[in-house]
Structure formats: C-alpha cells, structure tokens
Design a protein around this nucleic acid. Structure first.
Lengths: 227, 227
DNA sequence: AAGTGGTCTAGACCACTGT
DNA sequence: CAGTGGTCTAGACCACTTG
C-alpha cells in the first residue's frame, strides 16, 4: 500500500477525480443508499466532463459495488440491509458502517497477526511514526488511516493489502466517523500504541487482542454518537 | 453475491465481456506479469469494439490492480512482486497463491462464523445444494466457488460479500488450482459437508475450525502438486 | 411516448515516453 | 520524431423501463 501523501498528488486522471468526488459524497452521507443519481448526460454537463469520462468513473464504481446501473431507469446507490443490525429506516448509512467494522475485525485480526510475525525494522518504523502523531480534529482521518495501512503493509500479504487499500475501504476510512472528543483521541492513541507494542514484541496473540479491542471501541463510540 | 448460473446469463455488457476475457487470460497464464498489451486503438479494432468500451474495461481492471496504464508507453501487467496474478509462472506464482489462501483463511473464518449465527433457511438450502453436488473435473471450480460464495451470502455482510465476489478473487477461484485427484475430490466434499453441518448447528467455533482445516488442506494440496 | 443507459462513430488535440 | 494514453466533441441508434 502506498502512503497517501497529501502534498504531492493532484495529478489524478479525470475519472479518478469523479470517483473521489462520489466516494466522498457517500462517505459524508450526502448520498445515501437507495438514492438515484442524476442522468448521465446531465451529470456530464454539470461536472463539465465528457460522457465518456463520466462513464469510466461509473464503471469503476459499479465494479466496487457502490452504484448500480439500471437500463432505462437510472443509476442508484444500492440499498443497504438495515434489518440486519436491528436498525430502522434512515440508518442505512450506519448499517453499512457496521458491516465494514465487522469485516475489518476479521481482516485486521489477520494483518496484525502477520505483522507480528513478519514486520521488518522499516515496517516498525512506519508504524511507530504513525503512532507518534498526536491526534487532532484536522489529522484524525489521515493519521488513523495511516496507522492501519502501515500495519497492513507490515503484514506483507498483497491480497490483504489490496483489500485494505481499495477505494471501497477508503469510503469508510474517509467517512464522517471521526470522533470529536479529545478524550477519545487520547484513548485511540493508547490503543494504537498497545497494538504497536505487541507487534514489536512479535506477540501475535496480544496484537490480535489489542486490535479487536480497539475496533470494538471504535464501533461502540460510533453507535453512541450516531446510533 | 449472486449465484452464477451458467445457463441463463450471457447478457453481460460489452465492457464486462472484455474484462472477463482478460481475467481468464491472466488466470490461464496466457498473459503474464510484465507483459505489455496491444495499443488501445489496435485492440479496439481487433476486438471489434469501440475505444470507449475498451477504456471502460481498462479502468475497471486498473482499479483492480491487474493492469497499469503508462502514458506515452502503453498498458502493462504489473511485475510479479507487487501484483496479484502470475498464475502460470514458477515461484512468485505460488507465493501469490499463498497470499490469497492466507487472506482467505481470515476472511472465511469471518464468513463462516457469521453464517453460523445468521444463516436463514434459504441460505442453508443454498449451501446444502452446493455440498450435494458430486465433484468432478468438469465442475470442480464452479461447485467449489459456489460453496464458498453460498457461505459468504449467508454471512449477511455486504463488505465480506464484496471481497469474496470481487473480480480479483475470481482470478484465483478460476485459476489453474483445481485438483486432478478423485480421492481429493471426495475429501473436499467431506470437508465442505463438515462446514455445512457446523453452520446448520449454529456452532460458530466448530464451523471456524472446519473451514480453517479445509483451507489448510487445500493449500497443502497445492504445494504438494505445484510446489 | 419519453427518458435513460449501452454502445458506437469519426474524428480531434494534448501530454508524455521512448528511440 | 512517432507512438500512446488521456480527454474531448457532437452527434447517432438501440434496448429497456416507467408512467
């Protein structure tokens, strides 16, 4: 996984910018499951891009499962299974988030376990650096994401790497789920540090326990705030 | 995840057919890491499709990480170390496959655990049906894939569903890893059945143990044959 | 019937790479 | 310099869904 360096980029292709724009609208909740997008032709003119580029973006989003095209009808955000977590209408957003956290608990149980076994000195440096950053409102998403991707890289498994770095996952990582509570920021730092220490000690079981605890806390915190 | 019914479909969009064609060429080893594809304009005329459709296909493959576009140079299959295929080469080939199996062990530990908790009668029917098929050389990939996707569906987690059903995973599922040994087919059926029974009993721990055992056996079998 | 996605045509110009 | 991807234009026709 590449480190996301916010300074350099900006050389994205047109279609990638479009995807990012939609991804962030989904992440922020401006676009919700079940919503219908504007017609392709109209969207193209509003965004000042050609239909061709817009369609490239749609294809990618389609393959990510974040939109559905229905011939003769339009493009939609797939409806979420809200029943699952005992949620009610209007909480589809939260339903998706809980599925995501659930999936992460399995996937990251894997990445930390492997990281504990395989992390090189360089890997540990990157994780340590991510842990050292003091969390603030501004850098919350960036530093949290970097911490989890640093562990992923240390797991040296290209498939897990692909999953954690996928555009779909970035929807959640860049979502509106950041905590506003400075006390929670401190706790997060401590939880991250515990994971780091366990990996450094090459104690896979401890690392696994630490990340599961961390993800559980993250989830509970969101439910408390949004649920 | 939708059930793949080979009888009905065929109504794929043009770009999906193109993606499938490339995916199967990668899975079969006709295309290898480092290979350069033909120029976009030439490929379009050879496949008798418009440049626009071909580009849609390339965008999707790009987002899957299975091709890279280099302006002014061409499109390439990523080199072996970072990439996710190489299914017909020697050693990297195997390393990649092991990454995949490793990732699956974590992900499917999740899907079976959740399936044991959440599977509906309908879900169990689908899994049972998949287990009931007698494995042969012809249906090996299809029936094995269907079994694992049926469990995934029963987990009722859209994120895990997306991962297991992704085109990237299909490269491995449709790869050259099928066993040729009829005795092994029988064992696979038994292992599948054990997983099914555990899910049916809603015994998550047993289901987890059963799938980890199964995946371990699959892996060992491949190493024995290909390693 | 109108709206919308799916696909195509037949070009064009730019930016970049490699020789 | 020629080749190649990135993007665009300005249309067109078909198949399908919805009212």
């Amino acid at each position: 996984m590449n480190i996301v360096e916010f300074e350099e980029i900006e050389k994205l292709r047109s279609y990638e910018k479009v995807v990012q724009q939609f991804v962030s609208m989904i992440a922020s909740g401006q676009l919700k499951p079940g919503d219908r997008l504007l017609p392709e032709r109209e969207l193209a003119s509003r965004l000042s891009i050609s239909r061709a580029v817009l369609r490239e973006a749609f294809r990618v989003m389609e393959s990510l499962g974040i939109i559905e095209s229905r011939i003769g009808s339009g493009r939609y955000l797939p409806k979420a299974d809200i029943n699952l977590f005992g949620l009610s209408e209007g909480q589809e957003h939260l339903a998706l988030y809980l599925s995501f956290m659930e999936a992460r608990s399995y996937i990251e149980a894997g990445t930390v376990e492997l990281a504990a076994k395989r992390a090189t000195g360089e890997d540990l440096e990157r994780i340590k650096k991510a842990v050292s950053v003091e969390i603030s409102r501004e850098n919350f998403i960036k530093s949290d994401t970097e911490f989890h991707l640093a562990i992923t890289a240390a797991s040296h498994n290209s498939v897990l790497d692909w999953i954690m770095g996928s555009q779909l996952f970035s929807i959640y990582f860049t979502g509106v789920w950041g905590s506003e509570d400075p006390n929670r920021w401190k706790q997060i730092s401590e939880e991250h540090r515990a994971i780091y220490e366990a990996i450094k000690k090459k104690n896979a079981e401890e690392a696994k326990g630490a990340i599961l605890y961390h993800l559980e806390r993250v989830k509970d915190n969101i439910i408390k705030v949004k649920g």
